[in-house]
Computed example of a mutant assay.
Amino acid sequence: MKARCSAIPLGRAPRQHPRSVVCVQASRDFRPAAATDSARKALVDSLAEAGLDPKAGTAPMRRDLEDATQVLLGRAQDAGAVRPDVELPEVIALITALCLAADRQQWNETLRIRTLDVVFDGFRVR
């Protein structure tokens, strides 16, 4: 499965925009992704029940996602748009938590947008 990084192409992320930090997974891609995460989770669960490892071979994709997110985080911090104390593990944890919560609690679009606004606001320099 190919990682979805189409929100803002790497190298073109606005340096002054705090959303560039999490855009790889959680900005524009988050809304449609959250709608299909239930189907993906069901597939992963089915594979696991059949004795197959659904995570096998995903390490390179995870590294690519982390590398791209680190670049975007650094750019946003260099531009003064994101707090300097925010680190990659926190960004990845928030992305993961948002995706899981949206799926499990079946967030509507209004809640997804509002939640992202709150998270992005928390990244901003104070």
Rank of each mutant, 00 (worst) to 15 (best):
Asp64Pro: 02
Arg75Val: 09
Ala26His: 11
Leu100Asn: 09
Ser46Ala: 15
Arg19Gly: 03
Thr110Val: 12
Val82His: 06
Val22Pro: 00
Leu73Ala: 08
Met1Thr: 08
Thr36Cys: 07
Leu65Met: 12
Ala68Arg: 13
Ala48His: 07
Cys99His: 11
Ile8Leu: 08
Pro14Cys: 07
Leu94Ser: 07
Arg40Cys: 12
Ala79Asp: 00
Leu10Ala: 09
Ala68Ile: 15
Val86Glu: 04
His17Cys: 05
Leu94Glu: 02
Ala42Lys: 15
Phe120Tyr: 14
Ala13Lys: 04
Arg124Gln: 05
Gly51Leu: 06
Gly80Arg: 07
Leu88Phe: 05
Ala13Met: 06
Pro54Asn: 14
Pro32Ile: 02
Gln105Cys: 09
Gln25Gly: 07
Ser38Cys: 07
Gly122Pro: 00
Ala101Trp: 13
Ala97Lys: 14
Asp67Glu: 05
Arg124Glu: 03
Gly80Asn: 01
Glu109Arg: 15
Leu72Cys: 14
Gly74Thr: 12
Val86Arg: 06
Asp85Trp: 12
Cys99Leu: 11
Arg124Gly: 01
Asp117Met: 09
Ala97Trp: 14
Pro60Tyr: 00
Thr115Lys: 03
Phe120Ser: 02
Val24Ala: 12
Val44Ser: 04
Arg104Met: 06
Gly122Ala: 05
Ala81Pro: 00
Leu52His: 09
Ala42Phe: 01
Arg40Ser: 07
Val21Trp: 01
